[in-house]
């Protein structure tokens, strides 16, 4: 891992647990990653693997109770976000680290206009006057491609389509020019053509502003066009980390391999059967000792049941697996 002065956000050994009636859910179990200014890091993994919780924890947004951040550090410019006072953290949220959520239909407040929701961010963090804030909001809406933004800004969310709402979310998140943008499945709830537009828009804005982006998705297709580095998450842990093309060309973890084989490819002959990953997603309350993926893994060896494979490897491509699958 390239920890160093040039990293903007460094997360180290993060552990988050939820107390539920059925038992303790180890939603995030010791993940570490770092993001450099201007880069895009992809986090992929199936539903429930802990992608959202990882990033909510960084933002101090894990609902507590039932959740608890039990260990780890999240250094932003060297200061640990996880041990920061409430005020200090609030000054960073929405200002220097912003977040876009999965479902634009429910993430905007239905009781407030777009203007009210957008201006409150810049009035708070940039000390804009009401008029400045409104002008800025309209400008941002224009930049994210909302037609006649000077009218639309006074709409309520229910008057906008899903794609428009996600554009509003993006405009709102970028309003203060954050250094880090966490996008949690920003396109999952949208249909395919809108998805492409939104991803394109995020890429464009990121390049213009030099924002670092953490892009969370369960869709490898989304990762392919947008990220430089990718981490693959399984059962609360990172199982592989690699530069994007590397990951697609030479996946090293059986789970990544499975993910790649379960998506359709253009360069394969039509009719080639897709191979979904067999078996059940892991039960985070009763994880097996050793590798969490072992019950579903066709490469498993005897060692996998006894010891948890550490995440290691050379030159930016690391995997948590004992077997060489290449």
């Amino acid at each position: 891992m390239h920890l160093g002065g040039e990293m903007l956000l460094e997360v180290e050994n993060l552990k988050v647990q939820f107390k539920t009636d059925d038992g303790l859910v180890r939603a995030v179990d010791g993940v570490s990653f770092a993001v450099a200014p201007g880069e895009t890091l992809g986090i992929v993994g199936e539903s429930g693997s802990g992608k959202s919780v990882t990033n909510l924890a960084v933002m101090g947004l894990v609902p507590q109770p039932p959740g608890r951040v039990v260990d780890g550090k999240a250094r932003f410019h060297g200061d640990d976000l996880l041990r920061m006072g409430r005020r200090q953290l609030a000054a960073i949220r929405g200002h220097r680290i912003a977040m876009i959520f999965q479902d634009p239909m429910t993430s905007l407040n239905p009781f407030l206009t777009v203007a009210q929701q957008m201006t409150e961010v810049t009035r708070l963090h940039l000390r804009h006057s009401h008029r400045e804030a409104l002008r800025h909001a309209i400008e941002m809406l224009d930049r994210v491609g909302i037609p006649s933004p000077d009218h639309r800004v006074f709409d309520y969310p229910h008057q906008l389509s899903g794609g428009m709402r996600q554009r509003v979310m993006i405009a709102m998140a970028l309003a203060c020019k954050p250094e880090v943008l966490i996008a949690d499945e920003p396109t999952t709830a949208l249909d395919v053509t809108i998805q492409a537009q939104i991803l394109e828009l995020m890429k464009k804005l990121q390049q213009e502003e030099g924002t670092a982006v953490i892009l969370i998705t369960h869709d490898l297709g989304v990762i392919a066009g947008t990220c430089r580095r990718v981490v693959v998450m399984y059962a609360g842990r990172f199982v592989e980390e690699a530069p994007c093309e590397e990951l697609f060309r030479r996946p090293q973890h059986p789970y990544t391999l499975g993910l790649l084989q379960s998506i359709p490819r253009l360069d394969e002959a039509a009719g080639t059967a897709l191979t979904p990953i067999e078996g059940q997603p892991p039960d985070l309350i009763h994880l097996p000792p050793g590798c969490a993926f072992r019950p579903r893994c066709r490469f498993a060896v005897e060692q996998c049941a006894r010891r948890r494979p550490p995440l290691e490897g050379e030159a930016g491509h690391r995997k948590a697996c004992f077997v060489d699958v290449v």
Binding site: R93, A98, F101, D103, T106, S107, N109, P110
Partner: peptide
């Protein structure tokens, strides 16, 4: 969700 958004805005 929109309450979480509000907190995320600081």
């Amino acid at each position: 969700d929109y309450i979480r958004t509000a907190y995320a805005k600081g």
